[in-house]
Design a binder for these strands. Structure first.
Lengths: 337, 337
DNA sequence: ATGAAAGCGCTAACAT
DNA sequence: ATGTTAGCGCTTTCAT
């Protein structure tokens, strides 16, 4: 078993306290003793037991992160951001995934709580999580929500300005001269709706007329996003008047749409412009490099991490409640450069 | 602060011990008391402090995972596998990433050790990690290496049978009738070399002649894998005699190669077959669906997790040392179905 | 059937 | 400058 304070103390014929004091930089220790202790600590490779301390202080220097999955780049990117900032402060990250199963989510949270985590960052895809209201009532303050503002609404959260995602993409295509911009929209969720609204807002803000038949709902079939994008585009191309710009809810869908266009002989970006969302390096650097809206997942993770740290620091608990990250457009050849 | 055993005890005019016994299912408690306790526990939403127990038992029910990054699908997939199996046993996962920085890796390990993790799973891309030898000497047994067998070599590890990756892909193309199979090889690392060897072995096993000029080294330039695949393929196509099959080190490279082929008017799979490695859903379901070797990352994670659990269980510590996972070929249209 | 004591590793507060 | 005491939340052991 690992070396304890007492081992060092016995070894040096000192008391545990002396060792402890040296290690915590107390000054009431003779230089000589200090040196001897430090030396022995190194030799024995002593590593303090933080848990023992946590029992006293109530601080575990641990942050929990609960998310649906690590497989989605967007989410693992967030996780990286969190890990980065909390590590810098000596905190450690507990990760739990719950394939969108609310029960699992709850169990994970309980496991984290039983480990006395200082804060929990929750990326829940559930539309509601009632269990939080009841279960967690006492220490609610140390929860940080990501992506979805919880119902109770007075909570701490970090999210992406979703409407801006649609707006920024559409705005860009308009600036590039597009007049008929198709939107391959996402699912009928809060996020899906917000992005669609952003698209629509850009249209009207710039004096174009909104044409409902240019908004394509691709959901419902069991196909991959790529296939759905491909098929939706193929159909669009059969119409009498083609769009001169296409925005897709994800990069995969955009890739599918672009391939359908290329296959049909459409010149990109000469005749038609494309934009996706996600700025996924893998997808955006292929065939005609794809202009895409960066969802700033890493930044979101960092902010969530910082918020968690603030909540974990006794004094500062009351700090800023919410934080909306603005997406960024990344221009590539599919919109002319 | 959270509810403690003592709170329940005081509340019910019982001793801590009685509560503890009820919760641990001891039988020497009257049915009535038991019911009262259970009821109150629920009402007060008591969650046991596992850390307190850990201080006594030395078991924290925590496994640490150190990896270069969560951004790579291969790695996050492994993380998911680990999380899954250890959660089932009530363990919790500490995750630390270290962008291939050995110093960070060491610091992470120390942080984990100071939290008394029961085991650490280490996915190190370092070729050597001397610091382990020294620092961790005492509890070396609770380390599980993934992907790379450590120098000390008597360690516990889980890895992919890398040579089999190259062999299986090449074997498949040969079965499909290919005679001239190009290999877009990966970096000059242990793994890169093993896969190349597998390719070569399949060639000679099946009585074809190995042609060095069909092995293309794409590394060195700062380009993306896709671009490297694309360029390598474009060059291949300029030769007098074209290959009739192409294997790439990653799916991205395969995608690039395939696009170069398609652009040049090559019919896939009629005239040329393609296979990648990684079985990345995003990439494999695009344009001509790509046959790819699945690297079984999830399975690797699960095995590593199980190994970590075994090491964490006092009795079983000496169990199986190493475990090699066999990759699986996933056939798609790019090789004729 | 219920409870008291001791101790896991550590440190704040107080002696010496 | 060094050491003693007590206690963080819990359970194992041994009373009652």
């Amino acid at each position: 078993m690992p070396v304890r304070l007492k081992d060092i103390a016995d070894d040096l014929n000192l008391s545990k306290m002396t060792i402890s004091k040296v290690l915590s930089g107390q000054t009431d220790i003779s230089a000589e003793t200090k040196a001897r202790v430090l030396q022995r600590v190194k030799e024995l490779k002593y590593i303090p037991n933080i848990n023992a301390n946590s029992l006293r202080t109530g601080q575990t220097m641990t942050v929990g992160l609960i998310l649906p999955s690590l497989r989605e780049v967007h989410l693992s990117e967030i996780a990286e951001g969190v890990a980065e900032v909390i590590r810098a402060d000596g905190y450690v990250l507990l990760v739990g995934n719950n394939g969108n199963d609310p029960e699992l989510e709850q169990r994970q949270l309980e496991m984290f709580l039983s480990r006395q985590v200082d804060a929990v960052i929750l990326i829940s895809t559930q539309e509601t999580n009632e269990f939080l209201e009841q279960m967690n009532a006492p220490r609610k303050t140390n929860l940080v929500f990501v992506n979805r503002k919880p119902p109770g609404s007075s909570e701490h959260f970090v999210g992406l300005h979703e409407e801006e995602v649609g707006r920024i993409a559409c705005e860009h295509l308009i600036s590039c001269g597009c007049k008929r911009i198709a939107y391959l929209r996402g699912p009928r969720t809060a996020i899906g709706d917000l992005r669609a609204r952003g698209y629509r807002r850009a249209i009207s803000d710039r004096g174009l007329t909104f044409q409902p038949n240019l908004v394509i709902d691709t959901m419902g079939t069991g196909e991959t996003e790529y296939r759905r994008g491909f098929r939706a585009m193929a159909k669009l191309l059969e119409r009498r008047s083609r769009p001169d710009g296409v925005i897709a809810y994800t990069d995969s869908m955009a890739a599918g749409a672009m391939d359908a266009g290329l296959r049909a002989g459409v010149k990109i970006p000469a005749e038609m412009l494309f934009a996706g969302c996600g700025n996924d390096t893998l997808l955006c650097d292929m065939r005609v490099p794809l202009t895409s809206v960066d969802l700033c997942s890493h930044e979101i993770g960092q902010r969530a991490g910082r918020m968690a740290l603030r909540l974990s620091t006794p004094g500062k608990s009351a700090a800023g409640r919410g934080s909306l990250v603005k997406p960024k457009l990344v221009r590539r050849l599919s919109t002319g450069l």
